[in-house]
């Protein structure tokens, strides 16, 4: 394709890459871009990934996003009770959102301000505590800023590396915060002390820009890789199969 890939398409591919090597596990992506990432991975380099319709049906083939009337191939039944079974069994990799995230990957979706009487009540911790100590977890942040990437989160919903270690071997046994994908780059925790590292920056994003948008010091590799661009096939699948309505372009506020 001759036109340049959009930022949303780059982020979809970055989300897809988080699932590389996962094999036959259940992906639970929250949000449009993570959902497309999981399905793109399944249609390209991780053909055995398992995904649902976002509700109780495990799908045998992806349906176009937002098309409520598209026929579904149902390969298994996955009501919430089963979903908890999967989470606690370790056969899952979720990409959640994060209202706040810190350098060790502690994530907050519960509230802003003191939990006892929050300034802003958000969702509550939802499944984040259980997800993070049972399965690999990644995060998608469409608005990378110092308000999201903070020195310390207000309410630890998803558990980070320091807290998992402090809570003991049962907490850290299956704990893995794999990637944080934002509109600026991809970040991981593959450092000696598991503090957040730049894995790659999206094309055109400078080191200064990402550091200025982050409320703590990032570990910087040398050289800094650039995020993989979508292939022509990735873009064809996104446009023709997975997201013909173009919902992906609405999730990143610029």
């Amino acid at each position: 394709m001759s036109d340049a890939p959009t930022l949303a398409e780059i982020c979809v591919v970055a989300c897809a890459e988080a699932f590389r090597g996962d094999g036959e596990i259940l992906t639970s992506p929250i949000g449009v871009i993570p959902t497309l990432g999981a399905r793109l991975a399944a249609l390209t380099f991780e053909p055995d990934l398992v995904y649902t319709d976002g509700d109780a049906l495990q799908l045998g083939a992806p349906v176009p996003l937002g098309d409520e009337h598209a026929p579904k191939i149902v390969e298994a039944w996955m009501p919430f009770g089963k979903m908890f079974d999967v989470v606690w069994s370790g056969r899952r990799h979720v990409i959640m959102g994060a209202t706040q995230i810190d350098r060790f990957g502690n994530q907050n979706i519960a509230c802003i301000g003191p939990w006892a009487r929050p300034k802003v009540q958000l969702l509550g911790v939802r499944g984040a505590p259980g997800n993070t100590v049972n399965d690999p977890t990644s995060y998608w942040v469409p608005n990378h800023s110092p308000r999201v990437f903070v020195p310390a989160v207000d309410c630890v919903s998803g558990v980070g590396y320091d807290r998992a270690a402090a809570a003991g071997p049962t907490a850290s046994q299956f704990h893995e915060v794999r990637h944080v994908i934002s509109n600026l780059g991809v970040f991981d925790f593959e450092t000696d002390d598991h503090s957040m590292r730049i894995r790659s920056l999206h094309p055109g994003v400078t080191l200064d820009a990402v550091q200025a948008a982050t409320g703590f010091e990032l570990v910087v590799p040398d050289p800094v890789p650039t995020t993989r661009l979508p292939t022509d096939e990735d873009r064809r699948l996104l446009r023709d199969v997975l997201d013909p309505a173009g919902q992906r372009e609405g999730e990143i506020r610029t």
Binding site: V87, W88, A110, W115, A116, V125, A128, P129, G130, T132, V133, N134, C155, V156, S157, G158, V159, R163, A164, A166, A167, G168, T170, A171, F174, H175
Partner: peptide
């Protein structure tokens, strides 16, 4: 259960 370990719900 394992869920809850390390998270703020143990403090809250």
């Amino acid at each position: 259960c394992r869920a809850g370990l390390g998270s703020a719900i143990m403090e809250n």
